[in-house]
Simulated assay, not measured.
Amino acid sequence: MISLLSGTFLWCSENTVVIDVHGIGFEVTMTDAAVRDLAGTTTPVKIHTHLAVRDGEPVLYGFLTRSEVEMFLLLIQVNRVGPALALRILSQISIPDLAGAILDGDEAVLSRISGIGSKSAKRLILELGDKMKKRAALFVTGLPSGGDPVRRDAESALVALGFSHKEAVASVEAVLRGNSRSSDVAAVVRAALSLLREGS
């Protein structure tokens, strides 16, 4: 199994790039954003990959970050979501926004993705909700948090404990509003939990 390519960008087409690895050119299918990011780059690149078979032909799917490939692997576990649809989903919505929508059970956000109707949105939430909570630290990192690692880690911890993304953001915001300089993630989480219990 090919899980990582490290080499030099050669050229790209609409949704594929070719990477030279020691004289061998690998064609990799990627999201539109990833193709744009790599186009014309002259520095060595590393691409996380997943090899799948489509219509009897091997297809190498590529991703610039670990969170992208992990999300892709989760998506293709969902009934009726194949690699092509999973990549199309990732081309239309960011990892944090997708994770947040699934964690919050937000069918409206998911249904706006081309190729995902109401039934598919429900299926994503049902089949990935628990799995997403277990990997919250990986996927929720990057959700709007003002670049504050304490805020980000506290939100991720609360999501991992079973709270929705909205609840996590609101409670952490309330805690940090009173003490914006706090650098103790555990203390922020404890205070946020107290607020959440009071509101339940």
Rank of each mutant, 00 (worst) to 15 (best):
L85C: 11
G56F: 11
L60N: 09
F63D: 04
E127I: 02
K131A: 09
A174D: 05
M132H: 04
R151M: 13
K131Q: 11
I93C: 00
S145G: 15
V175Y: 10
Y61L: 02
D104S: 13
A160E: 12
G162Q: 00
L98Y: 02
D148I: 04
L85Q: 13
G162L: 00
L103F: 07
A174P: 02
D106V: 01
R54H: 11
D184E: 13
S180F: 08
V109Y: 07
L87F: 05
V78W: 00
S180M: 03
F163T: 00
K133H: 08
A99N: 01
S156D: 13
R181H: 13
S171Q: 10
D153Q: 14
S183I: 15
N179M: 12
L75V: 04
A187R: 15
S164M: 06
V172S: 08
I76M: 07
D97T: 10
A170G: 07
F63S: 08
T65P: 02
T141M: 04
L138S: 10
D106W: 05
A168I: 03
V150F: 11
A137E: 15
S164A: 07
V169H: 06
E167P: 08
V81D: 04
K133E: 06
A157K: 10
Q92Y: 09
A137T: 07
V159H: 02
R123Y: 08
S114A: 15
V78I: 00
G142C: 01
V81M: 01
I116L: 11
D97P: 02
I95C: 07
Q77H: 08
P96N: 04
A157Y: 06
A154L: 01
S111D: 07
A99R: 02
L110T: 08
V175A: 09
G117L: 08
K46V: 13
G115A: 11
D148Y: 12
A84W: 03
V59P: 02
V175D: 10
I102N: 11
V109M: 11
I113S: 11
K46Q: 14
M132C: 04
V175Q: 05
